[in-house]
Simulated assay, not measured.
Amino acid sequence: MDIREIFAFNLKAFRRAKRLSQEELAHLAGIDRTYVSLLERRVYSASIDVVQQLATALNVEADELLKRPVKARK
């Protein structure tokens, strides 16, 4: 998994765990809903500022969005 794939996987997993739609997450993070979709589909890369905004909206540390998922570490 490359870093963009890891970020996309984690972003989607945390968003779903919080039971948020892409639109709800985007609103909380102060970004556009379509941007969340593009990040989850690995079309765009997030800037470090956007990573922080999303982490804050999800109530997680920014590094959690960049860590390789446990099941993908093998």
Rank of each mutant, 00 (worst) to 15 (best):
M1A: 10
D2W: 01
I3M: 13
R4A: 11
E5L: 00
F7P: 04
F7C: 03
F7E: 05
F7Q: 04
F9P: 08
N10D: 01
N10F: 00
K12I: 05
K12C: 07
A13W: 06
F14M: 01
R16F: 12
R16N: 14
A17T: 14
L20H: 05
E23F: 00
E23P: 01
E24D: 07
L25G: 01
A26C: 03
H27C: 12
L28N: 06
L28K: 11
A29D: 00
I31R: 04
I31A: 06
R33Y: 00
R33T: 07
R33L: 00
Y35L: 14
Y35E: 14
S37V: 10
S37D: 10
L38D: 15
L38Q: 15
L39G: 05
L39I: 06
E40W: 09
E40K: 05
R41M: 12
R42C: 07
R42E: 05
Y44A: 14
Y44N: 15
Y44R: 15
S45C: 11
A46L: 02
S47D: 13
I48N: 08
D49V: 06
D49E: 07
D49C: 03
V50R: 03
V50P: 01
V51H: 02
Q52R: 04
Q52V: 05
Q53K: 11
L54D: 07
L54M: 08
L54N: 04
L54V: 07
A55Q: 00
A55M: 00
A57E: 09
L58F: 10
L58R: 08
N59L: 09
N59I: 09
A62E: 07
A62H: 06
D63E: 14
E64Y: 03
L65D: 03
L66G: 02
K67F: 03
K67G: 03
K67A: 09
R68T: 15
P69C: 13
P69A: 12
P69N: 12
A72K: 12
R73P: 10
R73M: 13
R73C: 12
K74S: 15
K74F: 15
K74V: 15
K74G: 15
K74P: 15
